[in-house]
Design a protein around this nucleic acid. Structure first.
Length: 819
RNA sequence: GCGCGGGUGGUGGAAUUGGUAGACACGAGGGACUUAAAAUCCCUUGCCCAUUAAACGGCGUGCGAGUUCGAUUCUCGCUCCGCGCACCA
């Protein structure tokens, strides 16, 4: 009897999969429905794949194989998000050019993936650092530039002093750099931006149309942060100036008792009275010198100073002190607020700290249990002149209308989202395709001159003063203006790596096109992605890719607005103790190690999918791999026993065998369909356990069908053992290639509902909702007979203490007797 | 603080629209096979009570209430954990 030996069979099938191009997606095949699936392409780090990658690929591969077996034309591509800091920092340390290290890392990843037995279409491999790829990233940049969606602006931005580059808001996590965890600072520089804010509303509305996890949608909604409200003008007394504030609660304007400006607000300087000028200056200086992180951590302590200036409330006509305080942020709204201490927690805190007037204008509803002094909810207006008695929502409209009539304000919408800062002062990225000309300003590099190839340099270390090392490449930098031909200089900043990953899903559909980024025909045929799988980037990448797609749609290059129809967001694979795997703790599990221990790729993938639901975090348990290996071994042994046994024509247990088989087809099919791999695998384990009981009666020919179906059902998660079994079950009459072609593309087994039905049913009998007995009766037993049986059952009768008040019968399932 | 998830045995986790709680697996215990071990196969395994033998016993899905014949599932309140955002006006 042949033993189950993954280290023997797995390389054999992997070789065939790799060599015969069977997983190359057919662009011309329009008979089949397409199914486009992709993982979030990885950064090819020097550390190689870890089990988290393996988990992701197990999900992708199982789904791809499942869909392929359902007759879909499957596109399952792979690529490398290869620009980025680790390779560059490695270059600074060792002198190895990032180009070289990246190639090595990719080769390593590919080797690892091959050993996982993935059904990837390698003919579409993408590498963002390949000039043939970033040529088109640059081309899209120039298109965005033409439309005003890429622009340059001098402004204060997040700067990482360690990585010596600016960062996008999305790359600052809790005031720290997402890459190196150092505290970031604000620095004023001229930078390139993508105008994502122009798409704020569209990006918000588009969320309603896509099948993405709710928490991701919520994260994006919060990030975009749309608020409806009003901008209101307050005249400053004795000045020809007014202060514009933004408020979501114009209904509380009668309760606005003072104004607060952000320290960066330009009016602070001009309106401060002589006697207050020094105090104000000191405060502003101190506030702006404080890092954002300090301002955040000191959040609870309100500080501020009076400017000496007064404004007045347009609604009440009453005077209002104008203060400066750092709890008002310059970056949001207008950088100034009307303070309504009675109905806003922060304003209340500030008012009590500095003894400013508090005036209640919204009546707290009687049923509101909050005992706070501040009531920030909605209610009925009081102390609000003509608006008394109106509800907050009515008053909001009416007060804004009144402000508009009197030129004192307008309805306004604001967003928290800022434009996407894309320039980076680092080497290892796609050069921004812009030429700066003395007479024409920033000019896009014409398509014919693309790509702007990243030059080889000697020293990769960033200089730190606002430019990348490319600035030192004098011959590269000096060029001529595409418009006038005069000497001009190249832009030396590179693009954020997120730019490169914002359109790769589109490039996969036409990856070798040298004339275009992609042909419309191809991209519209394959995209949008039917299933996109990842476990990272809730906002950044997943927002950017939506933004670019919408911009490309507006350019007429793609005819869809959302790039990803369905997003599957998987959990993390944690270490045994539930904590994150990390190099420093030495608890990182290497997938190859598991394979090499003899468990094989099939057991590894099956285990990863068996651990729990795909969207849950899970804890790695090496005993679990052993358990799944044991299961595969049992399936294997069963096949061998069948193969060697003398088959009987027929067995009395055949109908039971058929019933179990069809029941399992149904369960596995529906489970994989809803990505519930863990229960699908459990169903196959149950069937296997049942088969071990049935086999004591011997094997009939009927078993061949069952075992073939088992290998088909197992194929998505454990493709190697399935292929081997499949071939064997054809008595070796077919070759390897035919065997897997059959397995890959043969129609997925279907179940017959009639075969699943048992002749008997189990009726649960409850008394007062408590289980007291189970009845086995023929399926057709009428209700009154069942009720009779239920009442007469010994275990039930014992609990029927009083008069029967009610009897509930759910046909075929349950009886509940109430007494 | 706000938003989003979640709390089920020793562990990971099952449980279509409310209808047998704990599938499947790990771990643990016992047995078979073996000179022995590994591997394999079989049995037991939520807790408590009872036990010479015997379940037709009680409790049980974070806590407390509610709706219902019936709640892990629905409603309300509380609590704890995880994640995201965070002085966003």
């Amino acid at each position: 009897m042949k033993r189950y030996n993954p280290s023997e069979i797995e390389p054999k099938w992997q070789k065939i999969w790799q060599n015969d191009g069977r997983y190359v997606a057919d662009d011309a095949d329009t008979d089949k429905d397409k199914f486009y699936i992709s993982p979030m392409f990885p950064y090819p780090s020097g550390a190689g794949m870890h089990v988290g990658h393996a988990f992701e690929h197990a999900i992708v591969d199982a789904t791809a194989r499942f869909q392929r077996a359902h007759g879909k034309n499957v596109l399952n591509p792979m690529g490398w998000d290869a620009f980025g800091l680790p390779a560059e920092n490695y270059a600074i340390k060792t002198g190895t050019p990032p180009q070289v290290a990246t190639q090595q890392n990719i080769a390593n990843f590919k080797q690892q993936l091959a050993r996982m037995g993935s059904s990837i279409d390698w003919s579409r491999e993408i590498n963002t650092t390949d000039p043939e790829y970033y040529k088109w990233t640059q081309w899209i940049f120039t298109k965005l530039f033409e439309r005003g969606l890429a622009y340059q602006k001098e402004s204060a931005q997040w700067w990482c002093p360690v990585d010596k580059t600016v960062l996008a808001n999305e790359q600052v996590e809790g005031g720290k750099c997402w890459r190196c965890d150092s505290v970031v600072v604000k620095k004023s520089m001229k930078q390139w931006f993508f105008k994502i804010t122009e798409y704020a509303d569209e990006l918000l509305e588009g969320l309603d149309e896509i099948d993405w996890p709710e928490h991701i949608k919520t994260a994006q909604r919060n990030w975009i942060g749309k608020s409806m409200g009003a901008t209101i003008q307050f005249d400053v007394n004795e000045h020809d100036e007014f202060i514009t504030v933004f408020s979501t609660r114009p209904d509380t304007i009668f309760g606005a008792t003072f104004l607060v400006l952000a320290p960066e607000h330009p009016l602070v300087d001009s309106i401060a009275t002589k006697d207050r000028r020094d105090v104000v200056k000191d405060y502003v200086l101190a506030a702006t010198r404080k890092s954002e992180i300090e301002r955040m951590s000191e959040a609870k302590e309100k500080t501020g100073v009076f400017t000496g200036a007064y404004a007045h409330n347009p609604a009440t006509g009453e005077p209002m002190e104008v203060w400066v305080a750092d709890y008002v942020l310059w970056g949001y709204g207008t950088g100034a607020i009307m303070a309504v201490p009675a109905h806003d927690e922060r304003d209340y805190e500030f008012a009590t700290a500095f003894d400013l007037p508090i005036k209640s204008v919204i009546e707290k509803p009687d049923d509101n249990p909050s005992s706070n002094y501040v009531y920030s909810g909605e209610g009925i207006l009081v102390n609000s002149g003509a608006f008394d008695g109106e509800s907050s929502s009515d008053a909001r409209e009416n007060i804004v209308a009144w402000l508009e009539e009197n030129d004192r304000g307008t309805q306004t919408t604001t967003y928290k989202m800022r434009d996407w800062l894309v320039s980076r002062q680092r080497y290892w990225g796609a050069p921004i395709p812009i030429i700066h000309c003395a007479s024409h300003g920033a000019v896009a590099v014409p398509e014919a001159d693309l790509p702007v190839v990243l030059p080889q340099v000697d020293d990769y270390a960033p200089k730190g003063e606002g430019g990348s090392v490319l600035a030192d490449e004098k011959t590269w930098v000096s060029t001529t203006c595409p418009t006038c031909g005069e000497p001009a200089l190249r832009e030396t900043d590179t693009m954020d790596g997120y730019a490169c990953s914002s359109w790769y899903l589109l490039r996969y559909t036409d990856p070798n096109n040298t004339e275009q980024a992609f042909s419309s025909e191809r991209v519209n045929a394959w995209a949008p992605v039917d299933m996109y799988i990842g476990g990272d980037h809730a906002v950044a990448h997943l927002l950017y890719v939506r933004f670019w797609t919408r911009a490309l749609n507006d350019m007429g290059l793609v005819d869809f607005k959302e790039p990803v129809s369905r997003l599957v967001y998987h959990g993390y694979v944690n270490a045994n103790d539930g904590t994150k795997m990390s190099k420093s703790k030495g608890n990182v599990v290497d997938p190859l190690e598991i394979i090499d221990q003899g468990y094989g790729a099939d057991a590894l993938k099956t285990y990863l999918l068996f651990m729990g639901p795909v969207d849950d975090d899970s804890a790695w348990d090496s005993n679990g791999v052993a358990g799944v290996y044991r299961f595969l071994n049992r399936v294997w042994t069963l096949t061998q026993e069948f193969h060697n046994a003398i088959k009987l024509d027929e067995l009395p247990t055949d109908s039971e065998l058929r019933r179990l088989t069809h029941k399992t087809i149904k369960r596995v099919t529906l489970d994989i369909h809803r990505l519930s791999f863990n229960t699908a695998i459990a169903a196959l384990m149950e069937l296997t356990n049942d088969l071990y009981k049935l086999k004591t009666d011997g094997f009939s020919e009927e078993w061949r069908d069952t075992l073939k179906i088992v290998s088909q059902l197992l194929q998505p998660v454990a493709p190697h053992i399935s292929a081997e079994m499949w071939q064997q079950l054809h008595n070796g009459d077919i070759g390897e290639t035919d065997a897997i072609t059959m397995l890959d593309f043969t129609q997925w087994p279907t179940w017959e509902e009639s075969l699943i039905q048992d002749e008997e049913m189990t009726i649960i009998v409850q008394v007062n909702g408590k289980l007291r007995a189970k009845l086995r009766t023929p399926v057709a037993t009428p209700a009154d007979v069942i009720l009779q049986m239920a009442r007469e059952d010994v275990a039930v009768a014992k609990h029927l203490t009083g008069e029967i008040k009610k009897e509930i019968y759910i046909p075929g399932k349950l009886v509940n007797i109430v007494c």
